[in-house]
C-alpha cells in the first residue's frame, strides 16, 4: 500500500511516522463474494469512551455516498477533511485491501477500538461490521455481511 503517513499524522495524530513512538501495522481486509458492486469501507478508531479518535483509511472516492457509512458519518459529521489524503478506490467483492501504516504506541492496549463500516450500492448498509480492540498482540475478526475476514499485526 501507499505510504500515506504524513497527511494522516497531521490530520489525526494517530499515526506518527518515523518516530520511535510508533510501530508499523498491516491491516488486511478480505471481502466475501456478496454479489454486488465494489464496497465502500471506512476504517476508523474510537477511544475507550467510544468517542471518535480518527480515521485510518477510506476505500471509495465519491464523498456523496459517505452517508451510507453511517457509523463513520455520524462520528465525523461527514467531514471529508478526516480522510483527505487517505482515500483509495472501493474494494470489489472477493478482493483484499491491505494497508500498512505506523500507529502511535499510545493507541495500543489503551481501550481504542478499530471499526470498519461497509456499504454497497443498492444493497444494505453495514455500519460497524468490524469492531476490534487495538492491542499490541494484534487481532482479527470476521464480518457479517461483506467482510469475510479482517486482521492486523
Amino acid at each position: 500500500m501507499k505510504p500515506l503517513l504524513a497527511t494522516l499524522a497531521l490530520t489525526t495524530a494517530l499515526v506518527l511516522p518515523g518516530l520511535a513512538l510508533a510501530r508499523p501495522v498491516t491491516l488486511t481486509t478480505t471481502l466475501n463474494n456478496y454479489g454486488g458492486d465494489g464496497a465502500y469501507l471506512a476504517l476508523y478508531v474510537t477511544d475507550a469512551q467510544g468517542a471518535y479518535a480518527g480515521s485510518l483509511w477510506m476505500a471509495g472516492a465519491k464523498s456523496k455516498y459517505y452517508d451510507h457509512l453511517s457509523g463513520w458519518y455520524r462520528a465525523t459529521g461527514g467531514d471529508t477533511a478526516q480522510v483527505a489524503g487517505i482515500t483509495g478506490a472501493s474494494v470489489g467483492a472477493g478482493r483484499t485491501l491491505e494497508i500498512t501504516l505506523d500507529l502511535a504506541d499510545a493507541l495500543f492496549d489503551a481501550g481504542y477500538v478499530l471499526h470498519i463500516d461497509a456499504a454497497v450500492e443498492d444493497m444494505r448498509d453495514s455500519p460497524g461490521e468490524i469492531a476490534v480492540p487495538i492491542t499490541s498482540t494484534g487481532g482479527s475478526a470476521a464480518g457479517t455481511r461483506y467482510i469475510a475476514s479482517f486482521s492486523y499485526r
Binding site: K62, S63, K64, Y65, Y66, D67, S70, Y73, R74, G78
Partner: peptide, 12 residues
C-alpha cells in the same frame, strides 16, 4: 452529479 460538480451532495 457523480463527479460532484453539482451542489446536490448528501446532507444527513
Amino acid at each position: 452529479s457523480t463527479f460532484e460538480l453539482l451542489p446536490d451532495g448528501a446532507s444527513a
